[in-house]
Computed example of a mutant assay.
Amino acid sequence: MLLVTLINMLVVVAAVVIHYECLLRLNNLLPHLKVWHRFRIVFGVLGAMAAHAIEVWGFALAYFLMIKRGNWGTLAGNFDGTLTDCAYFSFTTFTTIGFGDIEPVGHLKYLTGLEALTGLVLITWTASFLFLEMQRYWAIK
């Protein structure tokens, strides 16, 4: 159980660090783009979405490796054991949609809960970042 907790913490910390680094780089890059100022927001949105996708795939890889390990749980339901299905489950968990066609069993439940909480926090962080960027660039005529 201690090893599962450490793995879960590592995955969450990795997602937060990835998000921080992506937003920091976007914040530094956007003012220097030689494009119409409103396209900076589009670039910011696309950059943030790319960060979220990387984070989701990180969780998906963790699910996949934990399932392959064998004794840390599995995903049940409409799940065929592929990395692609792990990514689908991760996207629905990260965004807190949770369609319910795949559900965690065993110790994977803990990572699933942490992913939903992490996704909520990181999506909110992105919304705040984009709000500040819109205030900065939409006021420019």
Rank of each mutant, 00 (worst) to 15 (best):
Y88S: 04
T112V: 10
N78M: 12
L117H: 02
I97R: 05
L122H: 08
I102H: 07
E115F: 01
G77K: 00
L117G: 06
G100S: 13
L83I: 12
K109C: 12
F99D: 13
A116R: 04
A76H: 10
T112K: 08
T84N: 13
T96F: 06
P104A: 05
L120W: 03
F89K: 08
L122D: 08
W72E: 12
Y110G: 14
T92K: 02
F91L: 06
C86G: 05
V121P: 04
Y110A: 15
R69V: 11
Y88D: 11
L75D: 07
T96M: 10
T84W: 15
S90P: 03
T112A: 14
T74E: 01
L114N: 06
W72A: 08
G70F: 04
N71A: 13
L83D: 03
G106F: 08
G100C: 14
T84D: 14
G106P: 09
T93M: 07
L83E: 05
T82L: 07
H107T: 06
E103N: 02
F94M: 03
H107W: 05
G77N: 04
T82E: 06
T96H: 09
L111I: 13
T92S: 02
I102A: 11
T95P: 08
L75S: 10
A87I: 02
F79Y: 15
L114G: 05
F99Y: 09
F99C: 06
T118G: 06
G106C: 11
G73D: 11
L122K: 09
Y88G: 03
T112G: 03
F89A: 07
G106W: 06
G73A: 11
L111Q: 08
N71Y: 15
F79E: 11
G70Y: 07
M66V: 07
G73L: 09
G113N: 03
E115S: 07
G100E: 14
L83M: 09
I97M: 04
E103M: 06
F89P: 09
G106E: 08
I102L: 11
A87Y: 01
T82N: 04
T82W: 03
G77H: 03
T112M: 04
T95I: 04
D85L: 00
K68D: 14
L75W: 09
Y110E: 15
F91I: 04
L120M: 08
T82Q: 06
F89H: 11
T96V: 12
L111A: 10
Y88I: 10
G119I: 00
Y88L: 13
G113A: 00
T118P: 05
A87W: 00
G73E: 06
L122E: 12
I97G: 01
D80H: 06
